[in-house]
């Protein structure tokens, strides 16, 4: 690059040339305009056809304010059943996560492309992963309540089933990312398949396995608080009951307890995470 002195100096600027400048090229501007039009059309379609009773919308702020007003002050009357249900929720989260971890290990092993024995096991594992993961915990709860009847067993199964897919997918990815060198070394000394797993794969996967399990445990504590809304046990049941009976002061108490347990769950899991990893 030259010094930049291309013959013009700034003293020439008294009579500048006229320039046009656009922020985008013609093509960019066209693409942009088309996408804006598409977005606006989509919004127009959604807003004009959605099944909303508009008078309710205009009265919504007042209604929400009214509800919040009724919630105050939180009532301690039902504190004991609330705390009991809360412990139940925590148990559901813990047991569900535990079951999911145990079941997810073999699924993850078969679902990891690099270690799975053959294509059939791979696709079978992937089917399980996709099938369990794509159905939300609450939908699983709906299914298990239909099978086992209302109660916390349905909740545990719901938490476990959704978590299997989540855990298996992430653990399988962790297995796929391991360093292949140690495995080859073990095979070279004549180790059996089980030994390769125990000495080559497990030690490499343990840190991410712990991180993934703790993450899911944290999420499941949150999830377990809503299972009761479809009858699958825990604090959600009391929440739904209080809403149905318009006991707003109990509702607010339940909300406080839920927020408290979610925050302390986050705190504990982050503590465990720091200890383990």
């Amino acid at each position: 690059m030259s010094t930049g002195n291309n013959g013009t100096t700034l003293t020439d600027m008294a009579r500048p040339d006229h320039y046009q400048w656009f922020r985008f090229t013609r093509l960019q501007r066209m693409v942009r305009s088309i996408s804006y039009i598409l977005v606006v059309a989509l919004m127009y379609w959604a807003l004009s056809t959605v099944n909303i009773f508009w008078p309710w919308v205009w009265s919504a702020p007042a209604q929400i304010g009214d509800m919040m007003f009724r919630m105050f002050p939180p009532s301690l009357v039902q504190l004991n059943p609330i705390l009991y249900a809360l412990v139940e929720s925590i148990n559901i989260a813990f047991l569900g996560t535990l079951i999911a971890i145990i079941l997810a290990l073999p699924v993850a092993y078969f679902g990891a492309q690099t270690v799975t024995p053959n294509a059939i096991t791979l696709w079978f594992a992937r089917l399980i992963i996709v099938g369990t993961r794509s159905v939300d915990t609450l939908v699983w709860a709906l299914i298990f309540v239909a099978i086992f009847g209302p109660g916390s067993f349905a909740g545990i199964m719901a938490v476990a089933f959704h978590s299997i897919g989540f855990l298996s997918k992430l653990i399988a990815e962790a297995i796929e990312e391991i360093d292949w060198g140690p495995i080859e070394a073990l095979e070279a000394v004549g180790a059996s398949r089980a030994h390769v797993i125990a000495y080559g794969i497990v030690p490499q996967v343990v840190p991410s396995f712990c991180a993934i399990s703790i993450l899911r445990w944290d999420i499941n504590i949150r999830e377990s608080t809503v299972l009761g809304l479809v009858g699958a046990g825990g604090i959600g049941l009391i929440f739904q009951g209080a809403i149905d009976l318009f006991q707003w002061n109990t509702v607010s108490m339940v909300l406080i307890v839920i927020v408290g347990v979610v925050f302390s769950g986050e705190l504990i899991t982050s503590m465990v995470r720091r200890k383990l990893i």
Binding site: W56, V57, S59, A60, Q63, I64, D66, M67, L138, R222, E223, T225, V226, L229, G236, F239, Q240, I243, V251, L255, I258, V259, V262, F263
Partner: peptide
């Protein structure tokens, strides 16, 4: 802080 479903129940109750 609240699970969307809990929020949903509250909004259904309100509006």
């Amino acid at each position: 802080s609240l699970h969307p479903v809990v929020m949903g129940v509250l909004f259904v109750a309100a509006v």
